[in-house]
Nucleic acid binder design. Structure first.
Length: 425
RNA sequence: GGAGAGGUGUCCGAGUGGUUUAAGGAGGCGGUCUUGAAAACCGUUGACGUGCGAGCGUCCGUGGGUUCGAAUCCCACCUUCUCCGCCA
């Protein structure tokens, strides 16, 4: 969430930002409710002060008459306080709802636009492969080589689930190990996180676990949800923590399963492994000082590129436009890899995403660091190191051969132990 | 899952209704002393809200309740430890 004082002092900018993001949050309402809540709080505080003073008068020995007068006074105060406290709770809930709907501000360089086609392409790397045969998509390849089974998964678990089989399992583990090796060399702390988190933590990160629009599965009756990304468990890791400046920055690499409802997502764009209810992901997460977050954002993007470049898959980088930014993000870069089986003749598909969320998450989660001028909120950033399901799409489709086999990217061979799936043995 | 015992400030730990404005100790920071360090001694040391400020308010696992007044009494929940059961 944003600082209410910032909202008040920059009301026009905040409103413009909400509009640019295609959102409907009401900044005026948040400020209004804050003032109401605040004046009520002051009223309650002064009554409490009277109550405390009254109680203090009763510490010593008093005549029964004197005591009776004080008790009567105390009872009156108690009633008034209870009344106002009830009202306050209502105001506070309304205020909380209002301010939580307001999205993070955007980096001045974020392109203004409504949807993903308004994103700015920053660069392209690698050469789009040309095939002298008709390339298949990963679904056909996976079925032909007995690597992915969607049909049985649909029967057992429902649509948008899959079984990975045979060498695809080794390939997935190879990708994980390849990624973790790079991240450890770069000084990330490796963490395997829980796949379940409390709803309040998910909400603090900016995922709303409730409601029809939620992309998150809740676990009934437990107050918890299946995580949509390790961003939730990594961001919640230091909730309520006050860092010493010397502890920062902190770089974490978390591996988890990710669960997404993806309600209503169907069609060509979402075919096969591209959009599924469950996948495995290695996620990077950084806690740092505010003045460092822009450069750490670039660092996360560079790391994503380094990992992806090692797979010899062509990709481009886009600077996400305002309308396509999540509520928490100040700025977001995506890597889109070339997927020859996508659309007709291939298309770009998102494989990583890195966001600088500045202090939007830390303010809600209470993650701070000490300064000479009091405690300040840290900046928090996240980035995909490796989303396994989408990486498999890229490898299958880009490295398919005319005989139906799939070559393994050079750098992965030490991890897989084989250099080709299918075809000649 | 059953039985029992706990959860207090950065840490340890005292505190069972109003001299607690949370004792005491450790650690941290500042100082005295010292060539320097250690020791000793003195001082200081939480968070949040609000207010220009002095200040005021809130926070003793969480949420309710009792009371003029709650760290302290009651209820529910969470969580840690010990033992038993079950289990990869």
């Amino acid at each position: 969430m944003l600082d209410i004082k910032f909202i008040r002092e920059n009301l026009d900018l905040v409103k413009e930002n909400i509009k640019n993001r295609n959102m409907t949050a009401n900044a005026d309402l948040a400020v209004f409710l804050y003032d109401e809540k605040n004046s009520l709080q002051q009223e309650i505080d002064s009554l409490r002060q009277k109550r405390n003073a009254n109680a203090a008068l009763m510490k010593g020995k008093l005549s029964p008459e004197e005591r009776a007068v004080l008790i009567e006074e105390g009872k009156n105060l108690k009633e008034k306080i209870a009344e106002l406290e009830k009202l306050f709770a209502e105001k506070e809930a309304a205020y909380s709802t209002a301010i939580l709907e307001i999205p993070n501000m955007a980096h001045p360089e974020v392109p203004v636009g409504k949807e993903d086609k308004d994103n700015t392409e920053i660069k392209r790397v690698g050469k789009i492969p040309s095939f002298n045969f008709k390339p298949k998509d990963h679904v056909e390849l996976g079925e032909a080589l007995d690597l992915i089974d969607f049909e049985t998964a649909a029967k057992v678990s429902g649509p948008k689930f899959y079984y990975l089989k045979n060498d695809a399992v080794f390939l997935e583990f190879a990708l994980i190990r390849y990624t973790l090796d790079i991240l450890r060399k770069k000084g990330f702390t490796l963490i395997e996180t829980p796949d379940i988190a409390k709803e309040e933590v998910a909400a603090g990160i900016g995922f709303n676990p409730r409601g029809d629009e939620s992309n998150i599965y809740t676990v009934e009756g437990t107050g918890t949800c299946l995580i949509g990304t390790a961003e939730i468990t990594l961001g919640g890791y230091y909730a309520d923590k006050i860092f010493d400046k010397s502890n920062l920055p902190i770089k974490m690499a978390g591996i988890s399963h990710c669960f997404r409802r993806e309600a209503g997502a169907a069609g060509k764009h979402s075919r096969g492994l591209y959009r599924v209810h469950q996948f495995t992901k290695v996620e990077m997460f950084v806690y740092c000082l505010p003045e460092e977050s822009d450069s750490f954002h670039k660092y996360l993007l560079e790391t994503e590129e380094e990992i992806f470049r090692g797979l010899d898959i062509p990709y481009r980088v886009v600077d996400t436009c305002s309308g396509d930014l999540g509520a928490s993000a100040y700025r977001k870069f995506d890597i889109e890899a070339w997927m020859p089986g996508r659309e007709n003749g291939g298309d770009w598909g998102e494989v990583t995403s890195t966001s600088n969320c500045t202090d939007f998450q830390s303010r809600r989660l209470g993650i701070r660091y000490k300064t000479d001028n009091g405690n300040k909120f840290v900046h928090m950033l996240n980035g995909t190191a490796m989303a396994l399901s989408r990486a498999l799409v890229c490898i299958f489709e880009n490295f398919q051969q005319e005989d139906g086999s799939i070559l393994i990217p050079r750098k992965l061979i030490p991890y897989t132990g084989f250099d080709r799936i299918g075809g000649k043995v």
